[in-house]
Design a protein around this nucleic acid. Structure first.
Length: 144
DNA sequence: GCCAACGTTGGC
DNA sequence: GCCAACGTTGGC
């Protein structure tokens, strides 16, 4: 089945890439999402889908690549069946983090959700965008 | 820390 | 179902 690509935003003070990596293969629940569009995106994710890990507020850059390791399930941090989330695990670092500035400056990425839907915290990424950001990040063989 | 953008809530 | 008020996100 064709894989899809995504982007997860996190404020490094709350949940950083380093913390995600420390979880290793076990991965971690992407809880706390209280936005329908972001939740709907997570509900569409499949095991093995790849995603960029983006640091918002501080850093403002794609710092690594993660993979969906558990399908959407109820968010264990709230007793409200509206909110689901997936689990993700770290796959690899971006050799060169790709900054928001660089994304905005690249005409090939002008339609990317990171630019057009600035406030959406879980976004879809097209395959072309995936390959382009991986190329900018210095990944010779991007995980697909 | 400010504030613009935008999603959500709730009164009507 | 509209829309004003409010809360949150996130770049700067």
């Amino acid at each position: 089945m064709e894989k899809n690509y995504w982007l997860f935003k996190s404020e490094p003070f709350k949940w950083s890439w380093e913390m995600q990596k420390a979880k290793g293969e076990a991965g971690e629940e992407w809880d706390g999402i209280r936005n329908y569009q972001a939740r709907n995106n997570m509900r569409q994710m499949k095991i093995g889908d790849k995603a960029f890990f983006y640091h918002s507020n501080e850093g403002l850059e794609v710092v690594g690549i993660a993979e969906v390791c558990a399908l959407s399930h109820p968010d264990t941090t709230i007793n409200d069946d509206r909110w689901d989330c997936v689990d993700i695990k770290a796959v690899c670092d971006m050799p060169k983090p790709v900054t928001l500035k660089a994304v905005k400056a690249n005409p090939a990425l002008e339609k990317m959700s990171l630019v057009t839907s600035m406030r959406l915290s879980v976004q879809p990424v097209t395959k072309q965008e995936w390959l382009e950001v991986c190329r900018m990040g210095g990944l010779e063989n991007p995980p697909l």
